[in-house]
Design a protein around this nucleic acid. Structure first.
Lengths: 352, 352
DNA sequence: CTGTTAGCGCGTTCAC
DNA sequence: GTGAACGCGCTAACAG
């Protein structure tokens, strides 16, 4: 375990100074005699020189690294976002330091501190913490932040929103236009702005089409995520479906707050011998990769996860590079993805 | 954007020296008068001090960070592994720098260099690159490596293997014991040791039970992953199933090289009006989280992804902490996960 | 117990 | 064009 060569070693071997070596090896545009330049490069290659970024960072105070905090990489929605972030970061010479908060406020705070200690200058975050004090304090300290997924009120940062209400509205309207009137809702607890908005969209659509709201058709989970819990949503879907099936009048369609929960719904319906979509239609939300893989392929609302990641990262890097000074707010739009889990009651009635 | 306070600022304010401040704030066990200790802590809190890890790293030459290289976080098998790695790393005070190679050798090499530049002292890697020279060179430079998933020949590193052959054997044997004789195999191209081993396991089992090998039942993809390609495996499953269905005698069961491909298989069978498992049974491999969510829930071979990540990380950190000096080789064992996608021909015959 | 000092590896003045 | 010298923030060695 011998020490790695530094620019000092190279300077000695190439019979020059560390300054010149640095100028050559860090691709500076400082003028250096081309003969000498080549010699230095040659020696560097000979000794298998690998620059020590720690030294450079300390000097330049620029880590070229951004932080990303998400609930869990295990959730395909977030992993797609991270992929988008990474692709852009890489293409622009930045690196990504990824943190899974596991929906734990403590862990989120811990990671926030770590990122800051590691001299990250930018942050893309889906925050779970109700306490925005730390985040706010960091913004003061010249940390650029782009928030997504979960809107953060009163924080001096850029935000990427998604029109959840409209998504909820469009999904419900889609079902209505397919002739459904008894449309159930299955949702995770309404503890976050995004979920509340989807819920509102559902109510708005029913209202707009003069469909009476039947509370027995609305199943909302009471138990929130445990921290670190896995496949919570899937099991939620199963449980809520059981509750739903207990009501006397079965719905003809179910709108589910996200695809993962919808998998649980379809699983349970199937177990109970109820065919999707023949007996009950299922509409999801998110359009994660697996939605098209299940049987029947899930009709759902597209949330542009990968694009969202790219957008967030470009935004952040533009800020870091000084191309943007103002904070920006962007609202991404939903889109219906038409597959096979929803029955068209109109046309199926015609057939009969 | 004013400069962040450093230990120097604190020393000035607390009327002491940087050395003492460092001793207090870095939780050194060096003796400091408790009165002074408290004063320093108080001042640090006042100015909202956050240590600059870059400075510490440069001095101590210890980044407390390990690198992880995997094909893609988007694949749930790898995301589970990463989760396991992270959980252990965090509990032991380390951080993880994650890299998605997207199965691109160039990108893998680029990340390898980056990790080294960032002074990572340990690496957990599922390498895709056929050229192990760079990896080998880095091992020489006091970089500890734990390889998993893809075995690396002749590399001075610890390795975590999985008994793919045995897994393939067990899966096939399981089908045989359920009364299946016409057992098809659907596999990604045999371009990696793991896949070849699964294939061998399949052949071994058939041989052992004196079942003649029918080449028309063996469908192996000819096209390899494109770099950066997504849902390749799913589409592979669809395509290979189509090919399979063209053969005159349909199998009673299909063994698929991984769960994601199995989803494609089930999808296509369904589309062709073939019931799983009533007409054709499907056996997967990996047991990713979604296997239990589809309909019917997939019977498969468990590869302990999360545990594998934890094991790999503990191993690496033990090496870094000097608790282990020797390289170790571990062979993890497969386990059948019994769900509903395989029909028991024996008992179903009894019923008729 | 505490302070002074000397680097860790690098990029950047500022002279020459 | 080039090199000597300094300092980024921190810890370790040593002296007191």
């Amino acid at each position: 375990m011998k020490k790695h060569p530094t620019i000092y070693d190279i300077a000695k071997k190439a019979d020059t100074s560390t300054a010149t070596v640095s100028r050559v090896l860090s691709n500076s545009d400082y003028p250096v005699r081309s003969e000498l330049r080549e010699k230095i490069k040659k020696v560097a290659k000979e000794v298998n020189y690998i620059p020590n970024m720690i030294g450079r960072q300390l000097k330049t105070n620029n880590s070229m690294t951004i932080g990303v905090i998400i609930p869990s990489i295990t959730n395909p929605f977030y992993s797609s976002i991270v992929l988008g972030i990474e692709d852009i970061a890489r293409s622009r010479g930045y690196h990504v330091f990824l943190c899974n908060s596991h929906r734990s406020p403590q862990l989120e705070e811990e990671y926030l501190k770590t990122l800051f200690e590691k001299q990250v200058k930018g942050l893309i975050v889906s925050s779970i913490s109700p306490d925005k004090n730390l985040l706010g304090a960091l913004v003061q300290k010249d940390l650029n932040i782009v928030a997504f997924d979960q809107t953060i009120e009163g924080l001096n940062s850029s935000q990427i929103h998604f029109d959840y209400r409209k998504g909820g509205y469009m999904a419900t309207e889609y079902l209505i236009k397919k002739g459904h009137r008894k449309i159930a809702l299955i949702s995770s607890p309404l503890t976050r702005p995004s979920r509340i908005s989807v819920y509102k969209g559902y109510l708005n659509a029913l209202e707009n089409y003069n469909i009476e709201i039947d509370k027995s058709l609305i199943q909302i989970a009471s138990r929130e995520y445990e921290e670190f819990e896995r496949s919570y949503e899937f099991r939620n879907g199963i449980e809520l479906t059981r509750n739903l099936l207990k009501c006397s009048e079965l719905p003809t369609a179910v709108f589910v707050c996200n695809d993962m929960t919808a998998f649980g719904v379809m699983n349970e319906l199937n177990k109970q011998g109820i065919n999707v979509p023949e007996q009950i239609s299922v509409m999801g939300f998110d359009n994660i990769e697996f939605s098209e893989m299940i049987t029947p392929p899930l009709t759902t609302v597209q949330q542009p996860d990968y694009e969202m990641g790219k957008l967030a990262c470009n935004l952040l890097l533009d800020q870091l590079d000084g191309k943007i000074v103002e904070n920006v707010d962007i609202m991404l739009q939903p889109r219906i993805v038409n597959r096979s889990s929803v029955l068209d009651l109109e046309s199926s009635l015609l057939k009969n």
